[in-house]
Write a protein that binds this DNA or RNA. Structure first.
Lengths: 155, 155
DNA sequence: CGGAATCTTTCCTTTTTTGTCTAGTTTATC
DNA sequence: GATAAACTAGACAAAAAAGGAAAGATTCCG
């Protein structure tokens, strides 16, 4: 269970654009300088973000990239799903069937339900979070934990 | 963010051994048949599990693998860390420094704190779970999701 | 002892993921 | 228009992960 490089660098690029403020734009060379990534690498990442609709591009000499929605309207769960996919998706079992055509554990699969549990935990932690939450500079190591803790006490 | 093949198949193999009951052992060919994986593939996975101390091996004709502790004493968090590593560990930043020697965001890194939040959510979901919980056949898709939903309604 | 069944180790091939390169296309500015 | 600065697209190369093969080591059992 790892974060992919694409998630790490893609999110950083998106964040650079967002930091410019609402409506502002940023070019590939600028992002490249800020993040210490090659321009071609940044270009590839931005292409993914653009094709998925998170950012918009303008061509030409005064071109660049801008967020297609306000940072407050970009859910982090969506951003991460685009950059790195879901932990556990519908195809997962068919990709892990071994030599059989259908996974041996097709019914009553305890591993699958574990993956679901973990996926739900991640979804829960991400629920309501947007790109704007990463801009404030506030670290939220604590909140997420506290959130879970609070719920506990209520029950 | 994906589960690795090693996590999926390694956990399944471990589970096969555990299903035999306390102290019982299982051979590579047996696991291979049950899971539909090649014997060499199973052998490689079991070697990882053995070197990490989760299982013990006996060589020779009546050999095989047994759990080195009772299933109740094998925390799933530990098992997954061995098979797939941690989502966010101490080396993470140094592996993603781009062309710089130190990550540009070394101080005040909002991305890093997001990764920490997600890691904590996973740790929280896994807390207290052991291999035995996967044996009972009880699915726990529901608890985690319902848990989050309940908390929401309270707030 | 000798053979069969088992685990162990090392190396190799294939596939996926990462990242680079190069040749375009578009647009502002002079 | 010509040039420069920008984005775009697709093929390519390098690295990591996944999986396979083969030869060796250990133990049981007749």
């Amino acid at each position: 269970m790892k974060f992919s490089a694409q998630e790490e660098y893609g999110l950083r690029c998106l964040l650079q654009i967002a930091r410019r403020g609402p409506g502002a734009s940023m070019t590939i060379p600028e992002i490249s300088r800020e993040e210490g990534l090659s321009a071609t690498h940044v270009a590839k990442l931005l292409t993914i973000l653009r094709k998925s609709g998170l950012i918009r591009s303008t061509r030409g000499q005064s071109g660049g990239y801008t967020l297609s929605r306000a940072a407050e309207a970009l859910p982090l769960g969506e951003v991460l799903a685009i950059l790195g996919g879901r932990l556990y998706d519908g195809d997962f079992c068919s990709r892990h069937a071994g030599q059989f055509s259908v996974c041996t554990h097709d019914v009553d699969c305890s591993v699958r339900s574990l993956w679901n549990t973990i996926q739900s935990a991640v979804d829960g932690a991400l629920a309501g979070m947007t790109l704007a939450d990463l801009l404030s500079g506030a670290s939220f190591d604590r909140p997420a934990r506290a959130f879970v803790a609070d719920l506990r006490t209520v029950n």
